[in-house]
Design a protein around this nucleic acid. Structure first.
Lengths: 227, 227
DNA sequence: CGGAGCTTTGACACGACTCAACGTGGGTGG
DNA sequence: CCACCCACGTTGAGTCGTGTCAAAGCTCCG
């Protein structure tokens, strides 16, 4: 089920914060409505959205081709901003990947961190280009898991080799659309990573990186993954 | 032969414009030395470079993996800026792809257009991610040629269907590193585009787009290219 | 118990890569 | 001035990684 949060058709000169959540229509808080999974925050080509900070949860930003092919540009976790690269209209869409709380940033608050946030977003986008253009499927998965661990991870109870555990917001299909692969290839690579004892997945969405250092080696091609 | 332009090892707090060109060492002009092909302007991981405007020619920005795999992040033509996404150190390298004239931008000059230039760079980087993650080889080539025409093109003498001609700065290998392909695949796709009468290539580096509209259809997958 | 949505696994196909040979054009030095 | 060289480009044959299509397995939840 898809909910809409912001972005009517026309472009107000001053972007208007128009927050409402169909699934819980009582919410009108500027501060932070709780959005359910698969809520569209803003839509590519629509009037520029205001800028939000992800307080909790996960947001995917993505572009879509006419025939339905989708490329996820970034997965955004707590603390980071969404709605950045827009000009008059949004350059991409944004969708929540789980229960997510956003915080609307006021103009002065934004100005403060605008440049550094934009620079970081650019750096991540360029790292993604490197990944998409030149890395193999296992390298992409290793890179992705390390990134997610950094954004969503808490140190695991098991202290072995700095293991990290995190909640996996994206589905296999989301990961595929992020990493330029298919759902099946993502699944197969995760299986290989499990069999190599580099990761563990419990209950489908709880991931533990058992050996981040080795994953990092795989991520940059210093080491290959067996079949 | 590789020339070095900027970026010693250590990081000065205030980035120092240190322009010199080994191939013509008399140049010390801040205004605009003429750089020969394959000159490194700044290097990934080195102290942050100042920001330049490309006056004439072409600059490639790229990242490299330890094993030599290279991903070109952007090809930058006249009027656009390089050196943008850097923090304390450069996030990528930059190299000229032909005789190129740069202009050093002073701090106030930069501030003026910093945000819009950064936003445009981000938009281009995200478009590249879409291309790398989800487009086929012919679609990538069509997209690339249209982009280059916009940056380097002058309307061709022949007025047929809005044909455009431009000087092709990148080699087949450069295009491959930009589009996430191999040199051979790029060559084969260009041959197919020629045989379909969509483009023409004279003297190896002068490209004419004979039917930009149809190329645009191919670029977004609305139409496929015969073999 | 049954169904929906997501995941896993297998068999097969195909696009892009690899390896290799050959062609072409511009520059250099004998 | 020509022969040679070198970098770049083209083309072909065969391989391989990833995509496609299909079936079956989980897990949650009504």
């Amino acid at each position: 089920m898809l909910h809409l949060l912001a972005g009517a058709g026309e472009a107000p000169t001053v972007p208007q914060p128009m927050l409402y959540d169909n699934s819980a229509r009582s919410h009108r808080d500027i501060a932070g409505p709780l959005l359910s999974s698969r809520t569209i925050v803003f839509h590519e080509g629509f009037a520029r959205s205001p800028i939000y900070r992800v307080v909790d949860g996960c947001v995917a930003t993505f572009q879509t081709l006419a025939d339905g092919r989708r490329q996820i540009i970034d997965l955004v976790g707590p603390g980071r901003l969404i709605g950045l690269g827009a000009s008059e209209y949004n350059r991409h869409s944004a969708e929540t990947l789980g229960f997510t709380r956003l915080e609307l940033l006021s103009a002065p608050l934004v100005a403060n961190q605008f440049e550094s946030a934009l620079t970081e977003t650019l750096a991540r986008s360029q790292a993604l280009a490197m990944l998409l253009g030149r890395k193999t499927a296992p390298e992409r998965l290793a890179s992705a898991l390390l990134d997610l661990a950094e954004q969503f991870g808490r140190p695991a109870r098991e202290r072995k080799r700095g293991a990290v555990t995190f909640h996996l917001y994206p589905t296999r299909g989301d990961l595929a659309d992020w990493l330029g692969l298919t759902l099946e290839t993502v699944s197969r690579c995760l299986t290989r990573l499990k069999k190599a004892d580099l990761i563990d997945i419990q209950r489908g969405d709880l991931v533990t990186l058992l050996d981040p250092r080795q994953l990092a080696h795989i991520a940059v091609g210093d080491q290959t993954l067996s079949h």
